[in-house]
Amino acid sequence: MDTNTQKALESLRRRKVNASIAIAADLANDNLNSICRLALAWISDGNVHGISYFIKPREGPVQAHNLTEDMLADSKPFDVVWDEDIAFLLKDAVLSAYRSERLFPAIKASYEASGRELPLKDVYIRDLKFLASTYMPNLANDSLSSILHRMKIPVDMDNALSRAMACICGLSWLENLYPISSYGIPLSAILAGALQGQPEEVVETREEREAREQKEAKYAKLTYYTKMLFLPFVIFCLFITIYYVHRYGEAAQSNVNFSRYSTSGVPELSDSEKEAQQEKTRLPSSSGRYLMMRGTYVIPDETTIPTFLKASHDRDMETIRSLVRSDKILVFAKPTRIQITGDKDKNGFVPIQILEGDYADRTGFAPDDMISK
């Protein structure tokens, strides 16, 4: 291990609690199991650090940018690199990536080409594309280059390490403006296709990207002075601010915070106060269609509610993860319309029927404060 690699790994141990580690990969060819380079990046001591590994694919030619078969000839297979160099770095980590629904199936396929099952389980993923599309209004598109251009973060799209470092910088940019530190999608949900319903990425060639960036730079100064000279711009900013506050309120609903149902430290209400509170917050049964935002959830079986409430009260995230993996808690990946079918029960859950999406026609119980009235 060289000195630079050793310093990078030492900085990894000093990163903040709950801080992400970003992952990016290059495929050697069109085969999903042909990862030939894997990169990790993180922020520690106020700086961005990263490390990458060459990997010898088990099948197919090497057609990746800036990589040749000679460069990978002495490299180890993916499963060996993962077991010896990567697995211990990711212990108890929150992982992040751009387009997790593509990256992690490739990681799973590349590892399991060895005939063994991928040992990466029970981890949560922060997806840069998902977060950017949720918290950044008016994106031209949600390609990685467009997201990073809005954030003014440079990136070499042909280099996995550069993409991983840009991804972790992008997440840090979002964390400084929005409440995303508790965000995470279970890896099992991603592998099951929870994010596959999102729009396809608009892919730009290098020439198209350079032409677009030159055009934007050409008009940057003109746009700046135009905004400064005209009063309508001030009025426009006022409307944008109102719109931003509205979008921020909607986006805040996309964070799944199971801990809100923990009753520790909450003073006991009297019977009259409970009744008044119930009447104030009661939703009418069968009263029309309502909306549940991304990140909200439904419990299909009423008998699961006490188990869920106890796990939330005890901060038992292992039990909650198990409920999500076994579909005893359904997490919405996009805004979904529902029908209320009955009155709220004493635990704060409302019986509903899902009207669209992957869970259409299923019934269950939703927290009343997650339903957009």
Rank of each mutant, 00 (worst) to 15 (best):
I125R: 02
S270A: 08
S100F: 01
S182A: 11
G342T: 14
K227S: 15
A276I: 09
M157Q: 15
S287Q: 10
R150N: 09
L40D: 04
K91Q: 08
F54V: 11
F365V: 05
G184Q: 03
V256Y: 11
T319D: 04
S44K: 08
A93H: 00
F308C: 07
M157F: 12
I371D: 09
L12C: 06
G197I: 05
S143P: 06
I354W: 07
F332W: 01
F233N: 15
D45Q: 13
P306S: 04
D142Y: 12
K346N: 13
N18T: 09
R15P: 00
K76N: 13
A93D: 01
D30P: 06
H149M: 11
R14A: 13
I329E: 08
G46Y: 09
S322M: 09
V155Q: 01
K108E: 09
Y248T: 06
D92Y: 08
Q353V: 10
S287P: 06
D327A: 11
M292P: 07
I338F: 11
E210V: 10
A19N: 06
D271F: 07
S143Q: 10
A73P: 05
Y178C: 00
R15F: 03
H149E: 14
K221M: 12
A211L: 12
T281P: 00
T296H: 00
T281H: 15
S286T: 15
I107K: 03
L90G: 01
T296M: 07
P351M: 07
Y359W: 09
P335H: 01
F308S: 07
F239R: 08
E101R: 11
Y248S: 11
P179W: 01
A25S: 10
G357T: 00
S322I: 00
G364F: 05
A192Q: 12
N47I: 01
I21S: 00
E175G: 03
K152R: 13
L40S: 03
L187I: 10
I168M: 04
K346W: 05
E208W: 05
C169P: 01
G197A: 00
L95G: 04
Y290W: 05
R362K: 12
V155K: 01
D314Q: 09
I35A: 04
N4R: 13
T68D: 03
T3P: 02
Q198R: 15
P351L: 05
R247Y: 05
A24T: 03
T336K: 04
R315T: 12
